[in-house]
Amino acid sequence: MYKAILFFHILAGTVALGSGLVAIFATKGRNNHRRSGRIYEFSMYAVAVSAILMCLLKFNPFLLAIAVFSLYLTYTGKRALFYFRLREKYQPGFPDKLPAFAGLLTGMFMIGFPVWQMLQSGTFFVPVLAVFGSGLLGSSIGDLFTFRKPELFGPNNKAWLLKHIGMMGGAYIATVTAFLVNNVHMQQQWLVWIGPTVVGTVLISRAIRTWRGKLKLQASKKTVGFSGEKL
């Protein structure tokens, strides 16, 4: 059973890599982007769920934490589109907040577990898991504070579109990292873990800046009349 789930996990990860790449380069808002994005979303769910099932059969705290991390990023990235497309005020409930609480607990584990390992072994090593855990912890805390601001859950809040870019981009970083870790082996293996995050974060930040500029330009055009003067 473990081998069967592993095969499914690898297959879903391959689909996620391909569909995610198509979604990144496809024109945003068009059918190609929507379709590839939908395939990417469900393939990432399949990757995370299959990883959790493997951990139940053969416990691996590292794999379990990364699986929950990927699941959190994918779900919140997709959920951000729901908030972006709101047509009326929305009151977030417990189902909206549950992923943030799960991310908070998982992030604390991802930081605490390698620290506990170092204390037990008496040796120092690069806590790669803690690096990812810090990002997850910070994002989860930020989401919980967001839910305390009802004014953000109004119609057409474009900040959620930027959130979508950041979270989905983060999920793709996790996918690329998993692929490289399983196929690239070197003495400084921590570089394989951290490299995609460093490069991906720079690219995501650039994309967010670009889209923030586009959204500001669109907003300014809507406030200008035929005479060119602001209404």
Rank of each mutant, 00 (worst) to 15 (best):
T74A: 05
L73D: 07
V199I: 15
M54R: 11
I208G: 01
G93T: 09
W190V: 15
T197F: 12
R206Y: 15
G133C: 08
L231R: 09
A178N: 05
D96A: 02
Y45F: 15
F7V: 15
R209H: 10
I173N: 11
A171Y: 04
F226V: 10
F179T: 10
G29Q: 02
H185S: 14
S36C: 09
G213P: 00
S140W: 07
Y75H: 14
G37S: 03
R87W: 00
L86N: 00
F84Q: 13
F109H: 05
W211E: 15
S19W: 02
V224K: 14
Y83N: 02
I52W: 03
L73Q: 13
N156C: 07
V181L: 11
I66C: 03
V15P: 02
V68S: 03
N156P: 00
K221S: 11
K222E: 15
L86G: 01
K230F: 10
P92K: 11
K222G: 12
G166K: 13
V176M: 09
I39T: 04
K149Y: 00
F7N: 13
L86A: 02
G107E: 03
V224I: 15
R148V: 03
L136E: 04
I5M: 05
A130W: 03
G166Y: 11
Y40W: 13
I5F: 13
G20P: 01
T210I: 09
K222S: 10
T74G: 01
G112E: 06
N182G: 09
L119K: 10
V192K: 03
R209L: 10
Y2R: 11
